[in-house]
């Protein structure tokens, strides 16, 4: 379960110490997503979608309010607990965020290795996942040698390889053709049907229309619609 209560977030601004100004990006955000829920995250560029996603995948901490992610109250977690929590969250980034010096196989295997899975199991699972996203012949290829769409698929495979409880996707279909985008949405829908919570940030209204689901709509850092 995810719950935000009056959450605000601001980046450090000019100056330092008590006199520093802070630029508010999100203000008074309150919503809840039940376990296994699906939410679109909508809003124009600069509305705060990426910042809200950063809070959800623990890349930033709320400046105010209370956030509960997967049942864990963030304010009372240790660094180690937050690391363990991150392993239960799969993220598909807009810019892929693949490690350039690792092959597609090793990029996808990373979450499993961090979780301490035996190498024997990792080989089979990663190969199967890359086959599923259509990259069976590109296991050893470095990201720089892959097309944008292929990199996106590697990023998707990495996000779902360890069957996370929460999947967050930031404009996940931006670099995919229609067929691949359809396939990705079907994958997310299937994972959601199996109990994974999913939050997808998008400004692709056509895509949202094809997959009707409750939406969180942001405008200028404020939540203006939930449902």
């Amino acid at each position: 379960m995810i719950s935000f209560q009056s959450v605000g977030f601001s980046y450090p601004g000019v100056g330092s110490g008590a006199g520093a100004s802070r630029a508010a990006v999100l203000q008074d955000i309150s919503f809840a997503i039940p376990a296994g829920g699906f939410r679109w995250l909508l809003g124009a560029s600069g509305a705060g979608k990426t910042s809200l996603l950063r809070l959800l995948y623990l890349a930033a901490r709320p400046s105010q309010g209370e956030a509960i992610i997967l049942g864990t109250r963030l304010a009372s977690t240790s660094r180690h607990e937050r690391a363990l929590l991150r392993r239960q969250i799969g993220v598909v980034f807009q810019d892929f965020r693949l490690l350039g010096y690792l092959s597609a196989f090793d990029n996808v295997a990373l979450p499993l290795r961090l979780a301490g899975r035996p190498e024997g199991q990792i080989r089979a699972d990663v190969a199967e996942m890359l086959r599923w996203v259509g990259l069976a012949e590109r296991l050893e290829t470095l990201p720089a040698m892959l097309s944008g769409g292929e990199q996106q698929r590697v990023a998707i495979a990495r996000a779902v390889i360890n069957r996370p409880r929460l999947i967050l996707a930031d404009e996940p279909t931006g670099n995919l053709d229609d067929a691949q985008a359809e396939r990705l949405m079907q994958l997310l829908a299937e994972l959601n049907r199996l109990g994974t919570s999913v939050v997808v940030a998008s400004h692709n209204e056509a895509l949202v229309a094809r997959y009707p689901a409750p939406a969180l709509r942001l405008e200028a850092g404020r939540l203006v619609a939930d449902g």
């Binding site: 890349a59 660094r79 690391a83 993220v91 490690l99 990373l110």
Partner: peptide, 15 residues
């Protein structure tokens, strides 16, 4: 950048 990615994937400080 690599550290931020691996940290985001759940690598602990100790790791």
């Amino acid at each position: 950048e690599a550290l931020e990615i691996i940290h985001g994937l759940g690598a602990s400080d100790g790791y």
